[in-house]
Simulated scan of single mutants.
Amino acid sequence: MTRLLELRRVNAGYGEFKVLHDVSLYVDKGEIVAVVGPNGAGKTTLLRTIMGYTTLYSGSVVFKSVDISGKRVHERVALGLTMVPEGRGIFPNLTVEENLLAGAYLERDKSKVRERLELVYSIFPRLKERRGQLAGSLSGGEAQMLALGRGLMTSPMLLLVDEMSLGLAPKVVLALFDLVVKLNKEYGLTMLVVEQHVKNALEISSRGYVLENGRVVLEGDGRSLLSNEMLKKAYLIY
């Protein structure tokens, strides 16, 4: 397997407030890797650290064998890292298509932008149907599709997805997890997924990490974590 991302003993946070403590993890090309844990565990901060939004006190973030710890956010995006934030982060007063085009802001080749747009529409036909509709009028599930589609417009090598199921109905959540599997299996997209639905996330993942109080307390393949008695009791997994 090709090592795509590696965090090496990362300590990070915001200003003087440290959130992550000595965190190490990795993602190989072609994997879906889940990060689960209770609220306030540092899961979102982990993704934001990979993207360069936090203060890195020590340790390193390595992407494609290059230490990117000192690179700015747009430089990381240009290298192939993209984050779909918690809460979607779409622009409600722009149309669906305008939101998607905003995701390709670093691409100057208009033909490539058009190719990416058509690919996104082929993956999300509902977005194509609503291309001229204001994003703020979409349902929760459609808005999450738009957020994922906008992430794909950067043509990422690694997509970071933060709590995509937040606030959505169970039926919609299951459909989104199926979509993640499709993106991985059919389009070869590597993903690091932070998720509150522990069982669903681990079932579709090659491997997983459990984060508590900013520290990795468990790691392993998805099946072994699902059978871990401590995890089953903590998250009521049956």
Rank of each mutant, 00 (worst) to 15 (best):
V61H: 07
R130E: 01
R114N: 09
T55L: 00
G37M: 01
G37V: 01
Y238Q: 09
K64L: 11
L47E: 08
A169E: 14
A104T: 04
L225I: 12
G59K: 02
A143P: 01
K71Y: 15
G13H: 11
L218W: 12
E6Y: 07
R88F: 06
L160F: 10
L119C: 03
L179D: 11
G87M: 11
G214L: 05
G136H: 11
I123R: 02
R72G: 11
M157R: 11
E16T: 10
R116L: 02
V173P: 00
P38L: 15
I32E: 06
L179F: 15
R207D: 06
P125K: 13
R72H: 14
R48D: 12
S165F: 01
I32K: 02
G70Q: 13
V96L: 08
Y53N: 05
G37S: 09
G222V: 08
E75H: 08
S165N: 03
V181Q: 13
E229W: 13
K110R: 15
D28I: 04
A102N: 05
L47C: 02
T95C: 07
F177E: 13
G151C: 07
F91W: 11
I50E: 04
G208Y: 10
G30W: 04
I90S: 03
L101Y: 11
V66R: 15
V73Q: 14
G208C: 14
I90Y: 01
E16M: 12
G188C: 11
S65R: 12
L226R: 04
V216F: 04
G30H: 08
S24Y: 14
S122R: 14
N93H: 15
M83T: 06
I32C: 12
K112P: 08
V161H: 04
A169H: 15
